[in-house]
């Protein structure tokens, strides 16, 4: 049995809204310890992962291992129909396995229930990078304000949706996007005085090409947190992470474009 309390605009809803146009199914695994959501975009170029420990989720109830495929559009449409003040609970029960119920309760105790089928998609689990992997395979990381990151992603995506480059040295971070009519460069210098807001940490310079469209989509989600951290590798996907709550986190991975 699973009961997942949701609020319009919370991280779970936010992630679902963000990936609505990228992916059809969110794979959700719930245990007594918490929730893990994984969604791969339909072109198989990006992954978003949301980790929510039970202690960060007020009212979270799960007494067994539950692995389900949630149709993102159905869920988002239902949440959009609800009122901001409604208490929303996502339920998967033993008696109605194969379906999901989304219950909305207004402050006046009026209720609306949505019931829809779970997606029978084969759950694909990936071994996503742990700290050891990040330390050994990623040559650099950059911490920056999420609002600033979103602004850059929007700017890059507006110029060119298909081809962007991130480069980092121990002195600066640069973004580049190639558009049809022009290019855009954005450069950030490492500030020596204040490294709490913007901090570059590199073992060696890294340059990687990527598709700006995906970063722009995920950047919206990262504004749920004040800061984002980018992990850059010469051989592995670009990873962007933000912390949610006490121990939760959202991560996205964008496949690098291979340059000659």
């Amino acid at each position: 049995m699973l009961e997942l309390p949701l609020v319009k605009g919370d991280p779970f809803h936010h992630v679902m809204e963000a990936i609505l146009d990228l992916s059809d199914v969110a794979h959700v695994v719930c245990t007594t310890r918490g929730l893990n959501l994984l969604a791969v975009d339909t072109k198989h170029l990006a992954i978003v992962s949301l980790l929510f420990p039970a202690e960060d989720f007020k009212g979270y109830t799960c007494d067994e291992y539950i692995s389900i495929g949630i149709p993102i559009r159905d869920l988002v449409n239902a949440i959009r129909c609800g009122d901001d003040k409604d208490t929303i609970t996502l339920k998967v029960g033993e008696e109605n396995f194969g379906t999901i119920t989304l219950s909305f309760v207004s402050p006046e105790k009026n209720t609306v229930d949505y019931e829809f089928r779970l997606v029978d998609a084969k759950l694909e689990r990936f071994r996503l990078p742990d700290r050891h992997f990040l330390r050994s395979k990623y040559q650099g990381s950059v911490k920056m304000p999420s609002v600033e990151f979103r602004r850059i992603c929007k700017c890059l995506s507006n110029f060119g949706d298909e081809y962007g480059v991130i480069s980092v040295t121990d002195e600066d971070l640069t973004y580049f996007a190639k558009g049809t009519d022009g290019d855009v460069y954005v450069e950030y210098k490492q500030q020596e005085e204040d490294t709490t807001i913007f901090k570059i940490d590199v073992r060696e310079p890294v340059r990687l090409a990527f598709n700006p469209k995906y970063l722009n989509t995920f950047a919206k989600v990262f504004t749920l947190s004040g800061q984002v951290k980018l992990f850059l590798s010469k051989t592995h996907p670009l990873m962007v992470e933000c912390k949610i709550g006490q121990k939760g986190r959202i991560r996205c991975f964008v496949a690098p474009k291979v340059e000659p």
Binding site: P237, A255, P260
Partner: peptide
């Protein structure tokens, strides 16, 4: 010039 490996090719399946 801009070939694109899939994201899945970078991760092992569990």
């Amino acid at each position: 010039l801009r070939s694109q490996p899939t994201i899945k090719s970078f991760f092992k399946r569990v």
